[in-house]
Nucleic acid binder design. Structure first.
Lengths: 227, 227
DNA sequence: ACCTGAACACCGTTCAAGT
DNA sequence: ACCTGAACACCGTTCAAGT
């Protein structure tokens, strides 16, 4: 494209310079996370990451096995912002809920991260720390170990899903409005209940998430694993 | 259908024959669902659907706005297999749970469908019927309308997520095993609880899903929306 | 009205070749 | 050891041109 022989150009282009500062895994992960935050999932492609680092896509494969593995690393990097409040003596529930609120907030603030969290198995120091923290609080709450294990899964997935839903709504107001007007146009004879609760279906911001957490925790306290 | 005995008609290759049986939206959706069931999400591409119908990808756009819209239609088509048991006089809970088990089973049996359900806003007769059904059962159970609306969302999402997790595990045993051995290799000093419940983290088939449903329902019965 | 071919602007991943 | 260019086998979507 812009290759025509430019006689004024005496300076050697960066491209032909033999040595470049070498890449690093950390650099790649950070660049990927930046792109993800700025442009969402479609922004985090191998080719775009490479371009942002001024190299070719094949160069990344020295440090990263494939996109999936990179995604896991990016998710974990993103989760370093989650705040785990210090444990309290009098209440196990409050810090637990606060941690989950922080988790949901982090995901909510970068929709791409929320999307990743739904499709990536979370292995990495930060997600492990979060799980460990939740398990400890549930243990303090006297919840069985099997229930606690399953419960952590349920709570984390709920957080991710709420964040993803909310984020994708904010991003593309189009789709949501379309869905809402669609619900309003429903036949009240065929779907009486649905039409009746149509407004509630789309309502509720943070309090809806809190409600869900309360529901799950309440339920766990009263349900046995062998019921 | 085929024009009989056209005197000017000499045998020509199918490719050069001007007229072909026209496509239809229904045909496209069904073909897409078949491909999705057989080959998962990567199998359901515009290009592959077109090839299966012996045409070019651009031909599909006469009947379908884009891949997203098609996905919604495919999801709904797939949900026609969900069984909604007749309402019972003595129990609202059993039919509700059975419907959700059926929902999860349908998604579980074709992993691609589970994946779709996590990324597609479910508008279509079959998903509406399911929501309406759940709302009615919850109403019978005496659950507030706001709680019911939010609860349906929670229950459906939980079903989809469990199906997706299970399906993606079965599909690629590699990733799961890797995750499991990874958990086993964790530092017990840093993650004592996590190592302790490591086995439970990956355990539990259908009973785990039932447990989650019980938890959510129990919790809903005891949680107010304004708590 | 419906279908087609060709093009546009993208993907992830591999691999021989360079330094 | 690291980087590169080029290639392979894919994507979704558009559009002028055909029938």
């Amino acid at each position: 494209m812009n290759k025509p022989t430019d006689p004024t150009r005496t300076i050697v282009s960066r491209r032909s310079r033999p040595a470049k500062e070498p890449l690093s895994r950390e650099q790649i992960v950070k660049t990927a996370l930046d792109l993800l935050k700025q442009e969402g999932t479609p922004g985090m492609s191998m080719r775009k990451i490479a371009k942002a680092l001024d190299t070719g896509p094949s160069s990344l494969y020295v440090y990263v096995a494939n996109l999936q593995e990179l995604s896991a690393a990016v998710l974990d990097e993103g989760l370093c912002e989650v705040v785990l409040p210090e444990a309290q003596k009098d209440s196990w529930k409050k810090p637990l809920i606060d941690a989950l609120l922080s988790y949901a907030k982090v995901l909510y603030e970068s929709p791409g991260l929320a999307e990743l969290s739904l499709s990536t198995i979370p292995i990495g120091p930060n997600s492990l720390a979060l799980s460990e923290y939740l398990l400890q609080r549930l243990h303090e709450g006297g919840i069985t170990s099997t229930q606690a294990a399953w419960g952590v899964d349920l709570l984390l997935f709920y957080g991710a899903s709420v964040a993803f839903e909310q984020a994708s709504r904010n991003q593309q107001g189009t789709t949501l409005q379309a869905a809402q007007t669609f619900y309003q146009s429903l036949d009240a004879k065929r779907y009486p209940m649905l039409v009746g609760v149509q407004a509630e279906m789309f309502s509720g911001g943070p309090e809806r998430f809190r409600w869900g957490l309360e529901v799950i925790l309440q339920g766990m306290l009263q349900t046995d694993t062998r019921s």
